[in-house]
Design a protein around this nucleic acid. Structure first.
Lengths: 343, 343
DNA sequence: TCACCGTTTGTGAACGTGAACAACGATGAG
DNA sequence: CTCATCGTTGTTCACGTTCACAAACGGTGA
């Protein structure tokens, strides 16, 4: 409304270091020293500068600093589908860790399915002169595109097992999938399906590998996994399809959403979970405990992932240390899995 | 200067405008003109410059540009709980719209409950010299803090009805709540509870207001709403508590997660949804259609919200136009609501 | 031939900060 | 008394870009 902050200052320009210096009666360099907490400043001078900064509501100009130091203090996050719980939780954790190290974060999400969309997203981040890159929930194509660009910055990929040459950090997806599968086998199931994620996703691939590994380790016959798209919607339709041949007693879904859709379909088909079919998911999203029935699933500690991710990135210069990070997932058994009744 | 154009450029510095200019045989200013697409450049010159840029893999230095123009082309998003679907979807939409207008986005999430956390988050954004601010899912305290700081930049608040003097844009939460409530009343319910969001949230308040408005408009007796925290976990405990006095046939929950928890509790208590109790949620998160039973809820178009938000922000200078934005929510009736059987 | 014009291009100065170096005063040793 | 030293502060430059202005160029009409 009233656009009259103060009658005098017609200067809309924000106060600069020089303004502070003038007010404090020192040179701008002294102000700079105070800001960056350099030694050899008389306490009294320092205080005077701090007072002036306070009085003028001074804020360092990030752009000027970035220009002269050629450091942006920004890290980029490349992600697909940030509305899903997993990626969102990871982003949150990374942002917190980055802020703690006085870095800031920008995200670019890959919109659409064309591979130009990947390049565009990376370009957006590069335009920001990011100093490090975190790739969340990468698809194979993203990974390939990235490798082809040969960027000169530290890259950490999350939730990937394909640690070729980049730094990589992940919850051990294969182990998680094995835990889920073993759980079903130990309950007595002999015919188990796997509803996997999209083919392109490294994460999905790892879970599928874990499933197949465990099945063959226990000498179980395996059927070809069904490739889904992470959504509950797909889980529902896949479930309806599967019900036409009732040759299974359990399904391991690659994430909780698809598991939810499956359970819906199974009930719609007149069967019960876990009475007729056991279901296990993956992720342990906060809602999973309140699905009906509460979902047995594999928990990933996303927050821990984000923290370690930043640690890895910030330590990227003194590399070599603590390189291979892997966080162990845990199985959370709830009501959606039980021994098969048809035995 | 004896600057040999040495073939083994040890200079790790990124190429600048001058490098491009030298290669193209023009002045840096001409390069600048090409980049910014200014008129009055000979086509041939332009092409030569573009070729040089390509050859050197030149990228404009964002910091330098920001410094001289004093425009950061960055907008900030202030949010709490970005792992929830609603905020996440809004952020996504805003980011897309911002990118389309060649702005970039930084987020700051309010971590913790102390009010200093709010100030810290805002400070982080201000340090980035944001040109505009979007506040998502604001709590009353955030709103107050913001007002107290009297920032000199356009602010858009999302999902708020408290449009005092700031620009504000929202899905009409009151209307949404009225739709949900009316739906239950029309089904024949007479005793309806409301499980509200946290007291501090403007959004929660609006939904509560809508509920109370509709109830009194239809001459229904109202009970005091229960204040929750948006989580399924809380919904579950509230549900168990409510079951001890069975004086209701329907509950309107302020979001889908709490509705999920409620349904869980009700089933745990030996009752059925919607047979014994009807449930209505709010948001229409993607999973809601696959809850058991599928959840009747109120849909908000988050993507549209994000788009309009950016339009409002970018048009902030030529203000006055199309000021009051309100997007209409719609009721999605599914299986969790039905006529009361106890009549 | 010259003055004038529009188009195209170049020159110099900012912007706000940090780094290198210089300068200053006080102190103490010789 | 001189000189080296140390702690503190100031001066100057560079970072890569845009902006304001000037200059060069070719064409046109008097």
């Amino acid at each position: 409304m009233a656009q009259e902050p103060d009658p005098v200052a017609k200067k809309s320009r924000a106060p600069s270091m020089h303004d502070v210096a003038r007010l404090a009666g020192v040179s701008h360099q002294t102000v700079s020293r105070v800001i960056n907490d350099l030694p050899n400043i008389r306490e009294e001078t320092k205080q005077r500068v701090l007072d002036s900064m306070e009085q003028l509501q001074y804020r360092p100009n990030r752009a000027a600093r970035a220009l002269v130091t050629s450091r942006s203090r920004t890290i980029g996050i490349l992600t697909a589908s940030r509305t899903n719980y997993g990626p969102a939780a990871s982003i949150q954790a990374i942002e917190d860790a980055a802020n703690a190290a006085s870095y800031s974060v920008t995200t670019a999400s890959i919109s659409g399915y064309e591979s130009t969309a990947i390049v565009r997203a990376i370009d957006r981040l590069l335009d920001q002169a990011i100093e490090g890159l975190v790739v969340i929930a990468p698809q194979r194509r993203v990974f390939d595109t990235l490798a082809g660009m040969s960027l000169r910055l530290p890259i950490v990929t999350l939730q990937s097992t394909a640690a070729d040459d980049d730094m990589s950090l992940s919850v051990d997806q294969i182990l998680g999938a094995r835990l889920a599968t073993r759980h079903l086998i130990e309950l007595g199931h002999r015919s188990i399906y796997h509803l996997a994620g999209p083919q392109d996703w490294i994460e999905a691939e790892a879970r599928m590998t874990g499933f197949l590994d465990e099945m063959s380790a226990q000498d179980m016959p395996t059927t070809a996994p069904i490739l889904g798209d992470w959504t509950a919607e797909f889980g529902y339709f896949a479930g309806r399809e599967l019900l036409r041949m009732r040759d299974f007693t359990a399904i391991f879904a690659a994430n909780d959403q698809m598991a939810l859709g499956l359970m819906h379909a199974i009930r719609d088909g007149g069967l019960e979970v876990p009475g007729d079919v056991s279901i296990v998911g993956f992720d342990d999203i906060p809602d999973a405990a309140h699905f009906w029935p509460p979902l047995t699933t594999v928990r990933q500690d996303f927050a821990e992932l984000g923290r370690r991710c930043m640690a890895l990135l910030l330590g990227g210069l003194e590399s070599g240390e603590e390189y291979s990070g892997s966080i162990l997932p845990t199985l959370i058994a709830r009501g959606s899995s039980a021994a098969p009744s048809t035995r």
